[in-house]
């Protein structure tokens, strides 16, 4: 029964991915390529590329892609539900606990320590995205051979507009997409 198999595989992926994003890739690979042989490794690499190019969490993208390929639209829905089910259960419990206990002194203390850490982690995510956009993902910050001046201009202009005016970030992204389409296509 392919639906049950899809469902169960993605429940495991959803349950054992902690920290999201790239942490999910080896787990998905294990389920999809190694255990169930739904895809070849080459197809899986393509899937990772697509997931990076399209919006949404990589686990959801993988669930939809694998589900559709194996069992059509219904397969994609089943796999996606499997993927989010562990989150729904665990996070609902956390949400309840947060509502009940977030005003406690001790909990406030723990959360107080976490807030600056979260800011640090967001900064770290920003650095890698900036490197990807401006330097084509190279981590050698001083090897500026891959530096992309157009991307730097789009970055600087977007940041300036965001700081100066209260414009929705989504509009900024759409405009930058248009600019990219024009600039890179010429």
């Amino acid at each position: 029964m392919i639906y049950l198999k899809l469902f169960w595989s993605f429940v495991q992926i959803g349950l054992f991915t902690i920290g999201g994003g790239y942490a999910a890739i080896p787990l998905i690979q294990n389920q999809v390529v190694n255990i169930n042989e739904w895809m070849s490794l080459a197809e899986f690499t393509d899937l990772v590329t697509i997931a990076e190019l399209t919006p949404g969490p990589i686990a959801i993208n993988a669930a939809t892609f694998v589900g559709t390929r194996m069992a059509g639209p219904f397969g994609s829905i089943v796999a996606t539900i499997g993927c989010v089910l562990p989150s729904c259960v665990i996070v609902s419990i956390l949400a309840l606990l947060y509502k009940k206990y977030s005003s406690l002194n001790i909990v406030q203390g723990v959360l107080g320590g976490l807030r600056p850490a979260v800011v640090g982690m967001i900064s770290s995510a920003w650095l890698s995205i900036l490197a990807l956009a401006l330097l084509n993902g190279t981590t050698a910050l001083f090897g500026l051979k891959t530096f992309n001046p157009y991307a730097a201009c789009i970055f600087a202009a977007s940041l300036f507009i965001l700081k100066k005016f209260k414009i929705s970030p989504i509009i900024i992204m759409l405009c930058s997409g248009l600019v990219g389409l024009v600039v890179y296509s010429i």
């Binding site: 800011v119 920003w126 900036l130 789009i154 970055f155 900024i172 997409g177 248009l178 990219g180």
Partner: peptide, 24 residues
């Protein structure tokens, strides 16, 4: 063309996060 638009958006994503990082 799809690739080019996505490349443009990538730089904007970096700007949106930069804005949030500066603020926080």
């Amino acid at each position: 063309y799809i690739q080019n638009s996505l490349k443009g958006m990538q730089a904007a994503v970096a700007a949106v996060i930069a804005d949030v990082v500066i603020n926080l």
